[in-house]
């Protein structure tokens, strides 16, 4: 090995170490600056009250409308996406398992859909709303976000369902169960931890996305009380408060960002923890 090669290897190794720790450092800086700014601005009032008159000029109130709105929207969308997503994932892995080309094509299609930016879903949701004559509402937001998280939900469930051994399916058939029983009773039980992870992942996506609800869910200072009324969401509340010139309102945007980040961190922690707990019901081969 010549000296030049030695130096080249050394340089690249240093560069690689820098790159790796740079990524970790950036993550630390992001989390730190969100917390540092947010904790100062966070108060009980912000968490438990809805905006009062003059809220956006620095008067009192909080973001309870946005917190509850976001939770409603994300729960609704996750539930709906689960009801559509689970059957699709099961259908691919139980019914279509022998048609490898068809399965590959559906997976490919899902990956394509996954790549579509959320603003396109937002715009599409909006055209549908105009077409159907709907107003911005919680329902429209839920439907749009459902479309947006569907590919994420199905692909993550699919990834876990395809690990189910073929023998388990054969055992189930040999005991006389039909395909849908095998799918809904055996496969779901075997992969319950993965399915929960997929749900939580989709929930995190649903609650954090702003571009798709911008057109469809609208914004309101009131608490959500009907599916057909507009609803406030946390990402949009951060966005609107941040565009205010009043420093006190901007501070509340930092607090809202902290709340949103915390929700997502907790959900992601849960999904990691749950993965380990539900291993008991699983049959090992």
């Amino acid at each position: 090995m010549t000296l030049g090669q030695k130096i080249e290897e050394k340089i690249f190794k240093v560069l690689m170490i820098i790159a790796t720790y740079f990524i970790l450092a950036v993550l630390a800086v992001i989390i730190y600056s969100i917390f540092e700014k947010g904790v100062k601005a966070l108060s009980w009032e912000i968490l438990t009250q809805i905006p009062k008159g003059g809220y956006y000029y620095g008067k009192g109130g909080g973001i309870l409308n946005a917190i509850l709105g976001s939770l409603c929207l994300a729960f609704g969308a996750t539930l709906l996406a689960f009801l559509i997503g689970l059957p699709v994932a099961l259908y691919i892995n139980v019914f279509l398992i022998r048609w490898k080309k068809v399965v590959a094509f559906i997976r490919f299609l899902l990956d394509l859909i996954w790549g579509i930016p959320s603003i396109v879903y937002g715009a599409f949701g909006f055209t549908m709303m105009i077409y159907l004559g709907l107003q911005t509402s919680l329902l429209a937001g839920i439907i749009t976000v459902t479309l947006f998280i569907l590919p994420i939900m199905i692909r993550s469930m699919d990834e876990i369902l395809r690990t189910v051994p073929y023998g388990l399916m054969e055992a189930s058939y040999s005991l006389g169960s039909n395909k849908s029983e095998t799918a809904f009773k055996i496969f779901t039980r075997q992969t319950i931890s993965g399915i929960i992870t997929a749900i939580l992942l989709s929930f995190g996506r649903a609650i954090g996305d702003a571009a798709s609800v911008l057109f469809t869910a609208g914004y309101t200072d009131h608490l959500p009380n009907s599916l057909l009324e507009p609803v406030a969401t946390l990402p949009l509340s951060i966005f609107f408060q941040l565009s205010s010139p009043v420093p006190a309102v901007q501070d509340r945007a930092y607090a809202s960002a902290l709340v949103l980040t915390m929700i997502i961190l907790i959900v992601s922690l849960f999904s990691r923890g749950l993965g380990k707990r539900y291993h008991k019901t699983k049959i090992n081969f």
């Binding site: 990524i23 970790l24 993550l27 992001i30 989390i31 600056s33 969100i34 995190g204 609650i207 954090g208 996305d209 702003a210 571009a211 990402p235 949009l236 951060i238 966005f239 941040l242 945007a253 930092y254 960002a257 949103l260 980040t261 997502i264 961190l265 959900v267 992601s268 990691r272």
Partner: peptide, 17 residues
């Protein structure tokens, strides 16, 4: 986990940062 968290942070929060 670092990648998971980076992927999970909403884009509005990135914008704010």
């Amino acid at each position: 986990p670092a990648i998971d968290i980076l992927a999970g942070i909403p884009s509005v929060v990135y914008g704010l940062w």
